[in-house]
Write a protein that binds this DNA or RNA. Structure first.
Length: 913
RNA sequence: GCGGGCGUGGUGAAAUUGGUAGACACGCUAGACUUAGGAUCUAGUGCCUCACGGUGUGAAGGUUCGAGUCCUUUCGCCCGCACCA
């Protein structure tokens, strides 16, 4: 057998690799390690399309390359299988989600294996496996039993906090958590167990809180902020409303600062770092207290612009601010109440859509802390209760939103910042920039904005009505889902107090129905036998999707350990993920939660690193090329398998389609084709999805061209970071390349071509150019240009009629990471021992590529006109004197002497005329 | 509105970081071999022009001997965040 029969080659080697377990990875302290990770997939029923493996191929190339360079490589794969889609599917079909998940998972694995990845499948993890989620539950317990000590700036055991309370109360405790009234040791002793737990919940890193949450009626569950897009659920696109519920939370806000600063020490793309910075949303400002007239109360506001306080002419509270009721005067009560009612009934989506200015006066005034002027207090929807203190000091001259409000309600607008560049009229338009000097601000006039902020905070602190404060947009992450298909909480309520169930794993029990109860209770609540234990009732909510995915990269290091989530030894050896490849859609979800959990486990002394992913690369999306048929009154997506390569649809195919697809059934085929054999369809690039009938399945490509061609082609399409449309047209080029490679080894009569003769200088040069380029490209993850270089290399070796076995052998090693099957086969056929994966990466030898001469481009006024070859060591002067005598140069000089001649040795000659 | 990124042939894209723009492929054109080709090989292919030559990296300026690359302005597209005080 010596023609390129990719199917039998690929089947054969995949079986041999699996049999010989050549991708098994074990700790080996004699070798440097490399941890290459893919974002593990969520196995849906649709299977993989060609877009999914893009990143997997790239990380597989790097993994194989690192192995050839002597690294001990950890390259695992697993499945994230808890969550909504599987459960929705289970409800629809009445099957247990475990069953459907297993079917999907099997299909995914088959598809992945067909592409020839070098995964160590012995390390596979599934988030739904009790031996895995045992440790997800364990980490939750660690969070529950920890608090964040601001003094040491790390998470510590809750036991130690309780000891402090017992000795001295909470007076000296500084923590990152919810505000807590101070108490002494004896006050602590006298509290009931309930009260104590209530206080501890303000400190715990996993805690319960009753708040307004994103409630999705259709899905019957609460969603995290990053699971909601524009007021609709990310999964399914159902409306999301606000609802008051008691929920579990994890205190990611305690880590806000460290999540922000940690970004500076990891190699991630600017855009994803920026997205995380935005999401964390740190702003430095001040908390200021305003007294109210008559009503003996203080209103606290958060502002980033304390320098503008002299321009504050009114205040605004969020409609659901707790003080609204108490400060509203009887005269205003009706108006306020009806406004609050309307505001509360609005869904998130309605509220976002409505940009109109509205509000109501409470009837009460506040006292300006500097001028002692009375300023009215309003409520308005434009102030959000969830940010800052839910109340603002309004400075219409320097805030666009306040300005609009002031205009509408006829309130004063006082300019307190002068624009250094031009005269401005703040009555027309607010001046929001942090650039300028203070005015109308008594003693603070002439300070610039930065100085003004400092000075006013200082004075506020001295006079005891405010202090410097930092606010984050980042919210604590909701951790409860009222659904079945997730990790159960290891929590039992004893007399209403949540206590830890240490008997792990707490397995997910069976239930009669997966349908949400609609009352906000999880389906688990139906299983009373499970819920009611001898020591109390179990928590019936389950954990969110990100619970299992936040730490899976750790479990891969030691996936079978029954005693701990991963041994100290394996953690110390495999350490951080060196290269993580995945989609950008996880920017504020998975990637942020993983960083949070890593930092937490680091604080607890379990990890020696506090950033999980050293380098992150986001692969672009592969879009589909939809084919649209114009039927006169509408355009229909034609399934791509019916469309010819040139984008036409034949009448025969169309009629076959009519039999299968009811969308086309009532179209009159004769009228549509009107005597023509085929119709040209309109193609359109859009998301690859089942609903657009444009999905290209990698199995089909493997069948028709082979996995090696698929791998090469996906890389050849362009930089992995870029999104690009899939076009099956271009794939012939990479397939042809593999055939050309084959014909370097075997001639047309299938006879071996190679010999043991010494390689020519030319071929050595081609080879070493290639070694250099491929090595650099893989290090930079510029894999598209690598494929080009391979093509150049094979083209050159072909035209050189290269037969040197040593050259061909090195070429196979270089190409192996990209096309593992064909290279393994040729390696074997051309008489090499063992697996090619055990070979050594060829060493680049500069002497082979050094040139003696250079064909200098000779340009006149920057435009290339001719080429002249000179030795590389020729002096500038000698080159110049020869160039100005050149025929073509003389023609351009047209008799006059050159103004200037620039000779850049080894590069270019430019003549100015 | 703020932030990040991107605009190069008919198409996917290269360009040693300021030095021959369009490598490598797809497609297309012509030819060879072939019973046939959706196989293989050869040549050509940015645009305008018979040609000499001109022109060309979204647009307009600028710096430079020289700009796809640097600077300024501007237009368009994609992504993220968004009454965040």
């Amino acid at each position: 057998m010596s023609t390129y029969n990719f199917q039998s080659i690929e089947d054969k080697w995949q079986a041999k690799w699996a049999e010989s377990k050549i991708y098994r990875s074990e700790i080996d302290s004699t070798k440097p390690k490399f941890y290459a990770l893919d974002m593990f997939p969520y196995p849906s029923g649709a299977g993989l399309h060609v877009g999914h493996p893009l990143g997997y191929i790239a990380s597989d190339i790097v993994s194989r390359y690192k192995r050839l360079n002597g690294y001990n490589v950890l390259h695992p794969m697993g499945f994230d299988a808890f969550g909504l889609p599987a459960e929705q599917y289970a409800i629809q079909t009445g099957q247990h989600p475990k069953v459907t998940t297993e079917i999907n998972l099997k299909k995914y694995k088959e598809q992945l294996n067909r592409i020839g990845f070098s995964y160590d499948w012995e390390r596979e993890v599934q988030t739904t496996d009790p031996s895995y989620y045992k440790w997800t539950q364990w980490i939750f317990i660690q969070l529950f039993e920890s608090w964040y000590n601001e003094k040491t700036d790390r998470a510590e055991r809750i036991d130690s906090l309780i000891s402090i309370f017992e000795i001295e109360g909470n007076i000296n405790v500084v923590h990152k958590g919810d505000q807590t009234a101070s108490f002494t040791a004896s006050e602590w002793e006298n509290k009931t167990a309930h009260e104590k737990e209530g206080i501890l919940q303000n400190y715990r890193l996993a805690f319960q809180k009753e708040t307004t949450v994103n409630w999705c009626e259709e899905l019957g569950t609460v969603l995290a902020n990053d699971e909601v897009k524009d007021g609709l659920s990310e999964r399914g696109g159902f409306p999301v409303t606000q609802k008051l519920m008691k929920q579990w939370y994890v205190r990611i806000t305690a880590y806000a600062d460290r999540l922000l600063s940690g970004l500076n020490q990891i190699e991630w793309s600017d855009s994803i770092k920026e997205t995380q910075r935005n999401w964390i949303g740190k702003s430095i400002g001040a908390r200021l207290r305003f007294n109210t007239k008559n009503a003996n109360q203080n209103i606290e506001v958060f502002t980033t612009r304390p320098d503008t306080i002299f321009g504050c002419t009114f205040m605004v509270l969020a409609p659901d601010h707790p003080m609204v009721e108490s400060i509203t005067t009887s005269k205003q009560r009706d108006a306020i109440e009806s406004y609050v009612k309307i505001a509360n009934n609005k869904s998130e989506l309605e509220r976002k859509k409505d940009k109109s200015v509205s509000g109501v006066f409470t009837g009460t005034h506040a006292i300006h802390p500097f001028t002692n002027k009375e300023i009215p207090i309003y409520i308005s929807e434009y102030v959000l209760s969830g940010y800052g203190t839910g109340a603002i000091m309004a400075v219409p001259a320097h805030d666009e939103r306040d300005h609009a409000f002031a205009k509408k309600f006829g309130l004063d607008i006082i300019q307190v910042i002068a624009d250094p560049k031009e005269d401005i009229n703040v009555l027309e338009k607010s001046y929001d920039l942090k650039d300028g000097v203070l005015m109308n601000s008594e003693n603070f006039d002439r300070l610039n904005v930065k100085e003004g902020i400092q000075a006013i905070i200082q004075l506020a602190e001295e006079r005891n009505f405010g202090k410097k404060e930092i606010q984050f947009k980042l919210r604590d992450a909701g951790y409860s889902r009222q659904r079945y298909w997730g990790e159960p909480f290891p929590i039992i309520y004893k007399d209403g107090i949540p206590t830890v169930d240490h008997d792990l794993p707490l397995e997910l029990p069976d239930v009669d129905s997966y349908t949400p109860s609609g009352t906000g209770e999880s389906p688990l609540a139906h299983n009373t036998k499970w819920v009611n234990t001898s020591s109390g009732k179990r928590e019936t909510d389950t954990m969110p999707g990100y619970a299992g995915s936040s730490w899976y990269f750790i479990r891969f290091m030691d996936p079978k350990n029954e005693h701990t989530f991963a041994s100290k030894e394996s953690l110390a050896y495999w350490n951080q993920v060196d290269l993580y490849i995945g989609g950008t859609e996880h920017a504020t979800g998975h990637l942020l939660y993983s960083r949070f959990w890593t930092k937490f486990l680091f604080d607890k002394g379990y990890l020696t690193f506090d950033e999980p992913f050293k380098k992150l690369v986001n692969q672009g999306m592969i879009q589909g090329e939809s084919q649209l048929l114009n039927t006169g009154n509408r355009e229909l997506h034609v399934p791509i398998e019916y469309v010819s390569k040139d984008g036409t649809l034949t009448q025969n195919k169309f009629e076959a389609l009519q039999q299968k697809d009811s969308r086309f059934a009532d179209i009159n085929s004769k009228e549509l084709f009107d005597g023509k054999k085929e119709i040209t369809l309109r193609s359109q690039v859009e998301k690859m999805s089942k609903s657009k009938f444009n999905v290209v399945n990698p199995d089909r490509i493997c069948e028709e061209y082979g996995a090696d061609t698929l791998r090469l082609y996906e890389m050849f399409l362009g930089p992995i970071q870029d999104s690009k449309p899939w076009s099956t047209k271009g794939i012939d080029g990479t397939h042809r390349f593999l055939k050309k490679l084959w014909s370097l080894f075997f001639d047309m009569d299938n006879q071996p071509r190679w010999d043991e003769a010494k390689a020519s200088q030319e071929s050595l040069k081609t080879l070493h150019k290639t070694i250099k380029k491929i090595t650099e490209d893989i290090d930079n993850l510029s894999l598209n240009t690598s494929v080009s270089q391979f093509m150049i290399c094979v083209n050159e070796l072909s035209s050189q009629n290269c037969k040197s076995r040593s050259i061909l052998k090195d070429l196979l090693i270089l190409l192996n990471p990209f096309a593992p099957h064909i290279t393994e086969e040729l390696w074997n056929l051309s008489g090499n021992e063992g697996f090619i994966g055990n070979a050594q990466w060829p060493v680049f030898e500069e002497s082979y590529v050094i040139e003696k001469n250079k064909a200098y481009p000779i340009s006149i006024n920057g435009k290339t006109r001719t080429n002249m070859e000179f030795p590389l060591d020729m002096s500038k002067e000698d080159i110049e004197s020869q160039v100005i005598q050149n025929e073509i140069v003389l023609k351009w000089l047209d008799g006059s002497p050159p103004k200037k001649v620039i000779v850049v040795p080894g590069r270019i000659v430019n003549i100015v005329v």
